[in-house]
Amino acid sequence: MLELQNVNVIAEGKPILTDISFKIPDGETHILMGPNGSGKTTLLHAIMGTGNIEIKSGQIIFEGEDITALPTHERARRGIGVAAQRPPVIQELTLATLVDLVKKAGNGAKNVDELVQTMNCGYLMDRRFNVNFSGGEVKRAEFLQLLVQDPKLALIDEPESGVDLDNIAVIGRALHRLLKQEKVLDRHKSGLIITHTGYILEYLNADRGYVLIDGHIACSGNPRDLFEEVEIHGYEGCEQCIRCQ
């Protein structure tokens, strides 16, 4: 589904990501973890083609096509979707207008009303997007759009941040649905999920994890094992691990 080959990214002249390479096969969900400022969100920007960054070298391949220089909307139309950690406040648009735009831009999900209900967004639809939304409302609005968009590859930035336990459950179920994880065999939807806490792992089957430190992938492996190690030793311990060195 997605392959990064030796991707180097700079922002304002400074290197942020160094020599990033990994593959996410069809149907797999991978987890990205790492300390604050390690470059996780920048990596999602690089894949989506957003943010004030520049890809200096390397290639991003999506379904066999080099999308490194492709405009953002073309990437979205090919099947990449993102749920931002801190999406912008867009006071010019209501959530209803936004959802309608997303629907028209994509294949046009037919069950928008049902998705609005599932994400408990009915009362938010006529409000200006993210204006005075709570943490949980911001996330639910993100996932509502993503469900309408129904991408092949979902890039999710810290779905549990600023969200209470009830909302984590709603979002976890949405993620499960988005990645069509109810299917054991013949899974085609893929995901790359940034998480700090690992709570979200309770709601999905993650296949592989990466630890990003100072802009490079320091470690990879089973995501649950990686979390356990980080919980015990912290990212400082991770940096000193022989395997990572």
């Binding site: 989506m48 083609g49 957003t50 943010g51 405009p71 953002t72 909307h73 990437r75 979205a76 139309r77 979707g81 993102v82 931002a84 999406p87 912008p88 867009i90 010019e92 936004l98 735009l101 997303v102 831009a105 994509g106 759009q145 968009q149």
Partner: peptide
């Protein structure tokens, strides 16, 4: 905001 909408599939002008 423009980039956000583009990440949902809208062209820049849209």
């Amino acid at each position: 905001s423009v980039q956000y909408l583009m990440s949902r599939g809208l062209e820049r002008e849209e």
